[in-house]
């Protein structure tokens, strides 16, 4: 029973959330780790809110139960922030990744939040399926940037699932473009850091 990194994806039916979980798990597997990925199915209709997840560990993952305390929460469709309980089980250490231009939805002000506009990336590349931009593969590119899996492993996993090379390209672009959102949590953390630095300085000077 080792430490398990849990990643939860929020998407809607047809956006490839379950496949994202699978590709991430496969990439971790290529990294030499143990992983599992699952989808919590409800109605399998297009457009329904879907939760999928990946567990990554250095030892065998023996869990089948639902993810309870995710380390990463990936919101593929930003509308879901208002519809689904995206912060369920989240703690102050949980990292959020959202598909938008860098805005912070009010519900995520207290969390570490990263953003990348994968919709535009795919539209610019013409990476669409039945007129809809592909969101899952670039989202995974951004996740790789956050250090979850190696980029090479991710690319290898994407190749196993999708034949269109633009998926790889989209992941690469998202890897470069993902940014930390300067929300309330960021500001507080930054000021705390400053405070700490100032404190340390004072301490070093022997003032305290």
């Amino acid at each position: 029973m080792g430490d398990i990194t849990e990643v939860r994806f929020h998407s809607r039916g047809g956006q490839g959330g379950a496949t994202a979980a699978k590709i991430l798990g496969m990439a971790a597997f290529f990294d030499g780790k143990y992983s599992t990925s699952l989808a919590v199915y409800g109605a399998e209709r297009r457009g329904a809110a879907i939760i999928s997840g990946t567990r990554i560990s250095d030892t065998e993952v023996k869990r089948y139960s639902n993810l309870r305390s995710p380390d990463y929460i990936v919101i593929i469709d930003p509308v879901l922030v208002e519809i689904a309980d995206v912060t369920a089980g989240a703690s102050e250490n949980t990292i959020f990744l959202i598909n938008n231009r860098g805005e912070c939805p009010p519900a995520l002000e207290d969390y570490r939040l990263y953003a990348v506009d994968v919709t535009s990336i795919s539209l610019d590349l013409g990476l669409t399926v039945a007129g809809t931009p592909v969101l899952n593969t670039p989202m995974l590119g951004a996740l790789a940037k956050l250090g979850l899996v190696k980029q090479t492993s991710l690319k290898r996993a994407i190749k196993k699932i999708y034949s269109d090379p633009r998926n790889i390209k989209a992941a690469e672009i998202a890897y470069e473009r993902v940014v930390r959102v300067q929300n309330l949590q960021y500001t507080l953390a930054a000021s705390e850091e400053l405070e700490e630095e100032a404190y340390e300085e004072l301490e070093a000077e022997g003032a305290i």
């Binding site: 798990g25 496969m26 992983s35 599992t36 990925s37 699952l38 199915y41 089948y64």
Partner: peptide
């Protein structure tokens, strides 16, 4: 094999 838990999970 357990429905969804095992049918749909991805593992090595």
């Amino acid at each position: 094999l357990d429905g969804f838990l095992l049918t749909h999970i991805n593992q090595p």
